[in-house]
Design a protein around this nucleic acid. Structure first.
Lengths: 235, 235
DNA sequence: CGTAAGATTGACAAGCGTCAAATACAGTGG
DNA sequence: CCACTGTATTTGACGCTTGTCAATCTTACG
């Protein structure tokens, strides 16, 4: 068994989840780990008075629920934003991967750090930028992730979220989201057609966002060598 | 060599850093990793117009700079908030720990997830709470961390930060921090004496903060077994 | 004792939230 | 195929929290 095979059998058979279905609730005991195969899933925390904050919009390939792993009770709610397919992870297999494939362990560790960077940028965005800038940051971020998966994707993409949900991501009300989107449109930054957003002037949007682009280093020199059946036989 | 010994020699000889000294700047190439031995260190991102956002207030024992590990250029600036002592980590040794001590690798992974939880709570706080509540969240969080290190610590602690720095943590201006602290005091939540804060009514503060307490699970059942010289001899 | 940084307070402005109403849209059942 | 109904979007009026600007007071320190 090599690294790729171990990863492939980490998650169990995917389950279909329809839009708005909750995968697991904040407060649930002994939080588990999931892999998102298809669709979008939101991670959110709710406070009293009906206020909700989305912490992350997950897309296909993402691991769901990792932040709650060290907790006795899940911190966030996982809810399907579109119809989705989700596999469940056996945590014992995860532990075994760290033991058998140290390089994968480091890569999991680095992936967690990368998520910290995303949260840090969101915190700066929500804490220090105005409504227009926050939306620019969000749109650029989502668009970049879609392009990373499909390099031939153009400047258009479907944003399958209500304006209220968008507000719950960037910490604004639905009304403010509506006005800010309209302004971005009339100022020529974007065009809209229903749920489809066209990034009309990505450069200007990036400039408006005023956050630097992050460049990921794929293979740091201190990674352990890959290990496989050859040098680490199964017991 | 066992786990404890490997951890002990991870960081090099500590260096003295005086207050306000920058340990490393955002944008610096090939970011490294540090261990904070003594004092407080802030991690911040700066935007144009002089705006700054602190992402984390580090205390003794913390690992500094981890989020930037997957990046080509550091995302955050590390600056000493008090006089401090900081050790530098050899990243090759970190990789070696993942290879030789998988259990420690998982624990590093879980520590990163724990930091994500802290950031998520900060994001909810900054995004959805008002000035009083944000300060309540901050004070409770700092106090809890100090009590965790020293269980016999009372309700008083020194907060060695200017009001402007506090504002850069909770995304407020120094003026708003000042007014909010005053209100917390006149409303009986806290008492102040210079830089010393007394948590006069922790229950009320916690209630004001309106974020649930997070309970860490110290030993998840899926952790790999500890490994040492016995079952994994050095090459 | 003098100076600079930080804390405090007041007056005012701006951005966003709240409330409410009108319009567009999608899904449903006849 | 169409009327119906609930949800999402859009727009306006207004208020509240926080930011901005400026002045004064306090504290730390050389």
């Amino acid at each position: 068994m090599d690294e790729k095979a171990a990863l492939a059998e980490l998650a169990g058979e995917p389950v279909f989840i329809h839009r708005n279905q909750v995968i697991r609730h904040e407060g649930d005991a002994s939080p588990s780990l999931y892999v998102l195969i298809k669709g979008w899933v939101g991670s959110s925390i709710r406070l009293g008075h009906g206020n909700r904050q989305f912490l992350k919009v997950h897309m296909a390939g993402d691991v769901l629920g990792a932040p709650s792993l060290p907790l006795t009770h899940a911190a966030d709610t996982l809810v399907a934003l579109t119809d989705a397919r989700v596999g469940s992870v056996d945590l014992n297999k995860l532990g075994a991967i760290f033991a058998r494939f140290p390089r994968l362990g480091v890569l999991f560790f680095l992936a967690a750090q990368e998520e910290r960077i995303v949260l840090m940028d969101r915190l700066v965005s929500v804490g220090r930028l105005n409504a227009h800038q926050r939306l620019a940051v969000l749109l650029i971020h989502l668009h970049e992730r879609l392009v990373a998966v499909d390099p031939k994707a153009g400047p258009e993409f479907e944003l399958p979220l209500s304006q209220e949900q968008i507000g719950d991501i960037v910490s604004l009300t639905a009304v403010s989201v509506n006005r800010a989107l309209r302004n971005l449109q009339t100022d020529g930054y974007i065009r809209r057609n229903g749920k489809v957003i066209e990034m009309a002037d990505i450069g200007a949007l990036r400039n408006l966002a005023s956050l630097p682009a992050r460049r990921i280093r794929r293979n740091p020199p201190w990674l352990p060598r890959p290990s496989g059946a050859a040098d680490a036989p199964e017991r």
